[in-house]
Design a protein around this nucleic acid. Sequence first.
DNA 1: CGCAGAATTGATACATCTCAAGCTGGGTGG
DNA 2: CCACCCAGCTTGAGATGTATCAATTCTGCG
Lengths: 248, 248
Amino acid sequence: MAVTDQSLTQTDCADCPIRHRAVCARCESDELSRLEAIKYYRTYEAGQTVIWSGDRMDFVASVVEGIATLSQTMEDGRTQMVGLLLPSDFVGRPGRETAAYDVTATTSLTMCCFRKKPFEEMMMRTPHIGQRLLEMTLDELDAAREWMLLLGRKTAREKIASLLAIIARRDASLKFAPMQGRIVFDLPLTREAMADYLGLTLETVSRQMSALKRDGVIVLEGKRHVTVPDFDRLLSETGDDNDGGMPA
Amino acid sequence: MAVTDQSLTQTDCADCPIRHRAVCARCESDELSRLEAIKYYRTYEAGQTVIWSGDRMDFVASVVEGIATLSQTMEDGRTQMVGLLLPSDFVGRPGRETAAYDVTATTSLTMCCFRKKPFEEMMMRTPHIGQRLLEMTLDELDAAREWMLLLGRKTAREKIASLLAIIARRDASLKFAPMQGRIVFDLPLTREAMADYLGLTLETVSRQMSALKRDGVIVLEGKRHVTVPDFDRLLSETGDDNDGGMPA
DNA sequence: CGCAGAATTGATACATCTCAAGCTGGGTGG
DNA sequence: CCACCCAGCTTGAGATGTATCAATTCTGCG
């Protein structure tokens, strides 16, 4: 919760918490030091807008700490989240002048930024960066397609269960906790942000959270602290294949 | 309509219709000839399944001619299309063993295939391929995010109008026709495929097509041949920003 | 304490789904 | 050459899930 001074100032890449997962993951130490020379940190408070869609964007960045969202808004105000950015995720597109989406910090946020020009030049000379970026982009594309199934075909209850499962998984992977039985985590999103993620209204999100609580699938303490007594039970509510076992 | 012998047999890369847009777009002639050595063509009939999700996939490929779809199916049969593959689009993921989605030919289809192993080896030695693949993947990710807005927030009528606009644009770009005024094209998708694309039922697709027809936004001859008398009118039905003009 | 933002809950409206019946056009076999 | 058939499509009537509008109720915080 507390933002340390560390996270507000330049950190040595060697000590970076996302060193092995971010766009720089495959860099050798000499490549890393060249990156180190052009990087700078920026921080944002919860709720702050990092950039508006259509604005000129002269940097790209990695999320170091905190959570941000990508979203699109229609003229009449309908908005759809199209990306959830967690530590190590990459923001911005090399070769693009303006932001294609609104980027918003949902928690306090630290990003490791590179001005676009120098970064693009480094990409040309450092295949490791482009390779890693390709890998990350393919992963994001897979996630986007999973998300499309959710948006197009799942019921409200399945959508909520799926989102909780996604967050639980991510949280467990940070804590190296096993993904079964009892799981405990904090929701990093407001009901409204959940609604924008899921293509629902905030009222429907609230109702379905209450329903899952009533049915014992989850236990809530306060609005944000979630306990999942039985993760498999939660999975069975997502509508996804959850037997997984039995190879043919 | 008629599939020529040409398209069923090996074609010289220099004569390839997707030469300048596919994953090989940036290759120099020596790189191209190495690709040429490992490529082979495969063709499928309309309706045929190219590969099932979960099946072993030992090749990657470019669509040369025709249209294919990527889709996901839930246990109970609900299906969502997650990709529409047009000529020059790339299928498969380097480094992945099994297919993540069902791939289906919706028209007769010709693909230019590479066995995965040799292709991956070439990617290591040929930065141009990885660079182009990154670019294409980023484009697909943008398209997926546009699609997410459609799935999550648009009405049935807006969804249909958006799909028609997408197909009209693609068609016009192939014919170098201007994107305004009267547009004519053929729908390459059945009502059911449209429904799977849009996260609707086929009945709703049919009703909204009828409504757009009744309102004069489109004219139908038969079920597949579409005339759009006024493209701007169609755009205004998509819910997207359509003034576009006025830079601030 | 009391306010403001966040969340819950209720009543009702409405868009889309579901189930069901019929239509259409092109191919086929008698 | 006609009758039939079938997949693809349209249309209708009613059910249902989610949105909308409107009160409350929480919760953290100045």
